[in-house]
Design a protein around this nucleic acid. Structure first.
Length: 441
RNA sequence: GCUCGUGUGGUGUAGUUCGGUCCAUCAUGUCGCCCUCUCGAGGCGACGACCCGGGUUCAAAUCCCGGCACGAGCACCA
């Protein structure tokens, strides 16, 4: 059975980049009726926050990505204890005593000399006596996994054949001096323990994967299928990380983006399949194919979400938006005609309140100087309320006679005066809903 | 600096393995027309690309060499 996981760390809100990883893992599992696990990677007690855990769950639920099981790494420390014991007994975990600033200095030196900043394994040369002295002097050290210095190769689900030279990578630190387990170890242990069969993550993890493959083998686990998707960039190709603050899921939600639009885009962006709106995750699942994704950096432009949201809204019935309409004050009696009328002219549901304002309290009229007299005259012959579906054509016919205007020069000034906007729904149907006309005063 | 990956219309891409069938695919976008009071929707049509420079060849998006650009990694973060 296919088992996948999405493993966010609760140190911030989910953003658009996370959605890709979450969605891909979800779709991969669902496609073969497998299991999708939500794993909270909260090994860092200082940065992990309960509120973020809640927010992440809320975001995933909003998207419809239901998990079959949820786990917290902070509750699984025993497993990491025994795994590190195992590695220690195999002699592939070694204690180091350099301070962070010492390591930093080493790296800078290496960089200056044009060398890759790889850990020099100085601790491996320490005698038992030297270790004891350092321990007395500095307290407990941190522990590194000793990589076998050969080429690590695997066939990636997206990047195809990959080969990384372990000598170009530092031995990863698995346990901090304060005893805290690091992601690299926890992730590997959990993946083995949970029987994860497929790992889809961003290509920022490619070198992690190389070292993790060695760790998995060292722990006697089975190496899962890895796939690394390209990272998103902004519309100009710039790294998205700089803008991630504004691309949190909750911001998109607040902006009125609808989940089907977001899922439809993210399940296809960067793949060879065309981006088209799908109404349900089931449909998206059926057509999802990891192998169609390219490895080039993927440009993401949040503007692309609006046409998709617009199309999605067209498919909604009154009952789907009833509560939204109520919240902006549309009376039940007018709800149906209001929705029918406005749904084709909105990008998001947030636009509804603007329209309701136009109908209920009236729009600030927009009147061009050259139309001032024309509008004044037209308003003076506008029949009294209530209007019906014939009012518009009767009225405009009469205005036409008086003014001699026709076509756009006849209709556009009237539209602007009544709605304050150049675009909008059918005026014949707008009139009966108008409750106040500022242009008339 | 080193390592990994990537460069095809505005955007996402197909084609690159085994050079010709590619005056380059599909989708989206933009523009125009039809419809309409406007926009949208719908219908019809058009526009628009092989990162650059060499080389090999009868023939290069595809092979070779050299540039350039972009993304990522090189943490006691995840």
């Amino acid at each position: 059975m296919v088992i996948t996981r999405f493993a966010p760390s609760p140190t911030g809100f989910l953003h658009i980049g996370n959605v890709r990883a979450a969605l891909m893992n979800f779709l991969l599992a669902k496609k073969s009726k497998g299991q999708f696990i939500l794993r909270i990677d909260d090994t860092d007690p200082e940065r992990s926050k309960r509120e973020y855990v809640d927010a992440i769950k809320k975001d995933l639920e909003w998207l419809g990505l239901e998990w079959d099981r949820v786990e917290h790494q902070s509750a699984r420390l025993d497993l990491y204890d025994s795994a590190s014991d195992k590695l220690r007994s195999k002699g592939v975990l070694y204690e180091c005593f350099e301070t962070p600033s010492e390591l930093d200095l080493k790296r800078k030196k290496q960089l200056n000399m044009g060398k890759p900043p790889v850990y020099d394994r100085a601790a491996l040369l320490l005698s038992n006596e030297e270790k004891l002295n350092l321990k007395n002097e500095r307290g407990n050290g941190h522990w590194r996994f000793k990589l076998e210095q050969n080429r690590i190769e695997w066939t990636d689900g997206i990047l195809k054949d990959l080969s990384i030279d372990a000598a170009s990578v530092s031995d990863p630190v698995l346990i901090r001096a304060d005893g805290q387990y690091l992601y690299t170890l926890a992730s590997v242990v959990d993946d083995i323990d949970m029987g994860i069969t497929h790992v889809v993550r961003g290509s920022d993890h490619v070198t992690n994967t190389a070292t993790q493959i060695q760790m998995i083998i060292g722990l006697g686990g089975e190496v899962p299928n890895f796939a690394h998707h390209s990272l998103l960039t902004g519309p100009g190709g710039e790294a998205l990380s700089k803008r991630l603050g504004t691309l949190a899921l909750k911001d998109l939600r607040d902006a009125g983006i609808e989940p089907p639009a977001l899922c439809s885009l993210m399940a296809r962006l960067g793949s060879s399949q065309p981006i088209e709106l799908r109404l349900s995750l089931d449909e998206i699942t059926e057509e999802f194919d990891l192998s169609t994704f390219g490895s080039a950096p993927t440009k993401f432009d949040e503007k692309d979400l609006y046409p998709l949201t617009h199309r999605y809204l067209q498919t909604l019935q009154l009952k789907d938006v009833q509560s939204k309409l109520e919240s902006i004050g549309v009376p039940k009696t007018l709800a149906q005609s209001f929705w029918d009328l406005t749904k084709e002219n909105i990008d998001t549901l947030n636009d509804l309140s603007d329209w309701w304002e136009v109908f209920s309290i009236g729009a600030e009229p927009v009147i061009k100087e050259e139309d001032r007299e024309f509008i004044e005259r037209a308003m003076s012959i506008l029949p009294a309320m209530p209007f019906d579906e014939h009012t518009w054509s009767n009225w405009t016919e009469e205005v036409k006679q008086h003014s001699g205007r026709k076509g756009k020069s006849l209709f556009m000034p009237l539209r602007l005066a009544l709605t304050g906007k150049e675009r909008g729904p059918d005026m014949a149907r707008v009139l009966p809903l108008l409750q106040n006309i500022k242009a008339k005063q």
